[in-house]
Write a protein that binds this DNA or RNA. Structure first.
Lengths: 145, 145
DNA sequence: TTGTAAATGAGACTCTATATCATTATTTTA
DNA sequence: TAAAATAATGATATAGAGTCTCATTTACAA
């Protein structure tokens, strides 16, 4: 698998954009941890490494990473966007509890074929998918009755 | 199929909450049209019908409708949340273009079994799901090269 | 009917995200 | 390699979605 930095750099060049130290640092930090994160957390982590990259650049670079398909958006329901890296990591889906809003991750390898078919039917080049199943977790079902 | 109003009223009672004219009007308006909508649009539509329901109540009621599973959230990528009614309507999924951000709807009936299996494996009572496939639409693929 | 618990409405407030623009950095070209 | 052209960054202003507060009103139970 090609390194993230290389893939991202190619994406940028392909768009007629430049590779900058800020973009590379943000990319590195995004792929350095394995949890969902939001912009504020990402900025804090960069600060801890001694980097003072502006909020605006972080937002801008994240938008590019999403566009490239290397990073995914996850709407966690606490009012703002969260992100997760995708490139080079096993795909997972989300179970969301409508009662407590909790988000549970689970592996799910069985969407590949369906994805392919849908892409063909809709003339769409598929990069990835986001499956969120919602319902009620065991704890919330207990409380209800 | 039982009418929306009845299902929602039961949901409210089950939660120890009250049925109010405001909640019923909002419910009716949500199910009166078939497109994605946001809070601002919903308030305008209520106004056109001569109803002056406050923004706060609209937000509060929508949250309840989402919790009940009758309405789904769709993050349209223009910076704020959009909604769609679900109860009693055929399920559809979304294709999102990473280039132009366009959202394309498509029917997809083939997730039922997978859903069932996932629910059992995770001790989760499944109400519905949200599948978003992202990639590049034909127009954006053309522009790129 | 009356009491009480819950819901509404108005508007202040918070905070995420975007826009602006002067400055700085990168790339191109001559 | 220097200068010109172009793009990116950073600081900060701004926009706007969504939440909170609390006084008033309403729904429901007894």
């Amino acid at each position: 698998m090609r390194p993230e930095s290389e893939v991202f750099r190619e994406f940028l060049i392909h768009k007629g954009m430049r590779s900058t130290p800020e973009r590379e640092e943000i990319l590195a930090e995004v792929f350095a941890h394995h949890d969902h994160f939001d912009v504020e957390e990402l900025i804090m982590r960069l600060r801890r490494r001694g980097l003072r990259i502006s909020r605006a650049s972080v937002y801008r670079t994240l938008a590019l990473l999403v566009e490239s398909g290397m990073v995914g958006e996850v709407y966690i329901e606490d009012g703002h966007m969260h992100y997760e890296h995708i490139y080079g990591h096993e795909h997972h889906c989300h179970l969301r509890c409508l009662g407590c809003r909790k988000l549970i991750e689970f592996r799910n390898g069985s969407l590949k074929e369906m994805e392919k078919r849908i892409g063909q039917e809709n003339d769409f080049e598929i990069i990835g998918h986001k499956l969120e199943i919602y319902g009620y977790c065991a704890a919330c079902r207990g409380e209800e009755s």
